[in-house]
Simulated assay, not measured.
Amino acid sequence: MADEGSELVSIEETVAALATRSQDGQVFGTPVQQGETTLVPVARVRTGGGVSGNRKTRSGGAGTVAEPMGAWVVTSGGAEWRPTVNVNLIVLGGQVAFAAVGVACAIAFRRKR
């Protein structure tokens, strides 16, 4: 029975860690106002956790990943969504396209021989 108690403590600690990481203000950031324009930053937040191990050695963990998505620009004329630009994703796409062209050229020149 002592093992079940330690298992519950480990699960409770993991859930408590997730609750601590999932606080208010993570998806919508603090609004920033300059003049008549207000910016509200927005992020995608993913939280997860788990417990693993056998009855004698049980461990747990929790983690949070936040990715900026954009910002709402609020003016007297209304609100407008401005998405962020992920430059790393654009560069990766260019590298994959370049590699695909290189492989296609290598196959084409190899067949001509």
Score class of each variant (00 low, 15 high):
residue 16 A to R: 12
residue 37 T to G: 00
residue 51 V to S: 07
residue 110 R to M: 02
residue 109 F to L: 15
residue 98 F to I: 11
residue 53 G to K: 03
residue 30 T to I: 00
residue 19 A to L: 05
residue 56 K to E: 12
residue 39 L to K: 02
residue 92 L to Q: 08
residue 90 I to G: 07
residue 40 V to H: 08
residue 87 V to P: 02
residue 22 S to T: 10
residue 48 G to D: 15
residue 101 V to W: 02
residue 18 L to S: 06
residue 91 V to F: 04
residue 53 G to W: 11
residue 103 V to L: 07
residue 88 N to F: 13
residue 55 R to I: 10
residue 19 A to R: 13
residue 88 N to V: 13
residue 59 S to E: 15
residue 58 R to N: 01
residue 5 G to D: 11
residue 16 A to H: 10
residue 30 T to G: 01
residue 12 E to S: 13
residue 8 L to P: 01
residue 44 R to G: 05
residue 106 A to E: 11
residue 82 R to E: 12
residue 46 R to H: 04
residue 100 A to W: 03
residue 25 G to F: 08
residue 96 V to A: 14
residue 109 F to R: 04
residue 31 P to G: 04
residue 33 Q to F: 01
residue 4 E to D: 09
residue 101 V to P: 06
residue 20 T to F: 00
residue 2 A to G: 04
residue 60 G to N: 12
residue 30 T to A: 03
residue 94 G to D: 05
residue 27 V to R: 07
residue 67 E to H: 13
residue 69 M to L: 14
residue 107 I to V: 15
residue 11 I to C: 04
residue 18 L to R: 10
residue 96 V to C: 03
residue 101 V to F: 08
residue 102 G to A: 15
residue 41 P to Y: 11
residue 93 G to Y: 02
residue 58 R to S: 03
residue 48 G to L: 05
residue 111 R to D: 11
residue 92 L to W: 02
residue 57 T to K: 12
residue 71 A to T: 05
residue 30 T to W: 02
residue 53 G to T: 06
residue 48 G to W: 12
residue 76 S to L: 14
residue 105 C to D: 10
residue 112 K to C: 10
residue 109 F to V: 14
residue 61 G to H: 11
residue 75 T to L: 03
residue 57 T to C: 01
residue 73 V to H: 02
residue 93 G to I: 04
residue 71 A to R: 09
residue 49 G to F: 09
residue 76 S to T: 15
residue 73 V to R: 05
residue 23 Q to R: 04
residue 70 G to F: 09
residue 40 V to L: 06
residue 50 G to L: 04
residue 110 R to S: 11
residue 28 F to H: 06
residue 32 V to W: 01
residue 78 G to D: 06
residue 38 T to L: 14
residue 77 G to Y: 08
residue 54 N to C: 00
residue 15 V to I: 14
residue 89 L to A: 13
residue 94 G to S: 09
residue 87 V to L: 07
residue 42 V to K: 00
residue 68 P to M: 08
residue 13 E to G: 06
residue 14 T to Y: 04
residue 1 M to L: 13
residue 100 A to E: 03
residue 49 G to M: 13
residue 2 A to R: 01
residue 97 A to T: 12
residue 107 I to A: 10
residue 68 P to T: 15
residue 70 G to W: 04
residue 63 G to H: 04
residue 108 A to R: 09
residue 23 Q to K: 09
residue 25 G to Q: 13
residue 18 L to H: 03
residue 27 V to N: 03
residue 3 D to E: 06
residue 35 G to F: 00
residue 80 E to W: 06
residue 96 V to G: 01
residue 13 E to R: 12
residue 68 P to Q: 13
residue 45 V to W: 02
residue 86 N to T: 09
residue 72 W to R: 02
residue 58 R to Q: 14
residue 44 R to Q: 08
residue 62 A to P: 02
residue 11 I to D: 08
residue 56 K to V: 13
residue 71 A to P: 00
residue 60 G to L: 15
residue 105 C to I: 13
residue 13 E to L: 13
residue 100 A to S: 11
residue 83 P to Q: 07
residue 38 T to I: 13
residue 85 V to D: 09
residue 77 G to L: 10
